[in-house]
Amino acid sequence: MRALVQRVSEASVTVDGTIIGQIGPGLLILVCAMQGDTADKPAALAAKIAKLRIFRDEAERMNRSLLDVGGAALVVSQFTLAADTSRGNRPGFSAAAPPADGEQLYEAFAEALAGLGPQVERGRFGADMKVALVNDGPVTIWLDV
């Protein structure tokens, strides 16, 4: 699985003009299931992200995790993270998991993350979503597990 994690002061996702997920301080997590991902990947990715020390401590150093600060997470599926741009100008997405597998792994990731304690809001798999965020820092981290 692949994720792009952004530390945010706020974020939301809108579908058909309606906000379906919204958080204050925490993480916006764009998630992509990749070809060959196994059932253990969602929990591994959730644990890595929950413990990722990218929030400021009292000394203003990135030394605290989402769990440490009690932040929330907005989890949004994004198959375009699998883009292959090695040839030509049109990205290919064949490295992404098929939609049925991708949805199952996305939901398993969101459940695993929620099981670790943070409030988890979600986008809608396969929907045309409008994502708004205020990136805090900015801090943006790319993860593969």
Rank of each mutant, 00 (worst) to 15 (best):
T85S: 09
V13D: 01
R122M: 03
R122K: 15
D84R: 09
L52M: 15
P118D: 13
A114F: 03
A59C: 02
L143F: 09
E107D: 14
D40T: 14
R61P: 00
L105N: 07
E58Q: 14
G70W: 08
V76W: 05
Q35R: 15
A3L: 11
P42R: 08
S94Y: 08
L67C: 02
G137V: 05
R90P: 00
S9D: 13
K130L: 12
D57T: 10
A114R: 15
L105M: 13
V134S: 11
A46K: 15
Q78C: 06
L27A: 01
S9C: 11
E10D: 12
A96I: 07
G24H: 03
R90N: 02
I54D: 05
D57Y: 06
I29M: 06
G92W: 08
E10N: 13
S86A: 12
C32M: 06
V134R: 09
A97K: 09
R2W: 11
L67W: 00
A59P: 01
V120H: 11
N89E: 10
R64Y: 02
E10G: 09
L143Y: 10
E60M: 08
E60C: 00
T14Q: 04
T140W: 08
A132S: 15
G123L: 10
L27E: 00
A132I: 02
L143T: 14
R124H: 14
G123Y: 12
A114T: 10
A96L: 03
Q78F: 10
F125N: 11
F93L: 03
A39P: 09
A39N: 11
L52Y: 12
A46H: 14
M62T: 06
V131C: 04
F93W: 05
Y106P: 04
I23P: 00
F55G: 04
D57Q: 06
P99F: 04
A47M: 09
V120S: 10
P98H: 07
I20W: 02
P99H: 12
R7E: 11
P91S: 11
V75F: 09
T18W: 04
P138E: 05
A44D: 15
R124N: 08
G71D: 04
Q104A: 14
M1H: 09
D68A: 03
A72S: 14
P138K: 06
P98E: 14
G21V: 00
L52S: 07
E107C: 07
D16S: 07
C32D: 01
A82Q: 03
S65M: 05
T80M: 04
P91H: 08
M129S: 10
S9K: 15
A33Q: 05
G17K: 05
M62R: 05
L81S: 07
V120C: 08
D136H: 11
G71R: 04
L143S: 06
R122G: 08
S9R: 15
Y106N: 11
M129T: 01
E58K: 14
A108S: 12
A96H: 05
D144A: 13
A44V: 14
D37I: 09
L45R: 11
L52C: 09
E111C: 07
R56W: 00
G117C: 02
A108G: 09
Q22I: 01
Q35G: 01
D84W: 06
K130C: 05
A100W: 07
P25H: 14
L30Y: 12
L113N: 06
T140L: 03
V134W: 13
L45V: 15
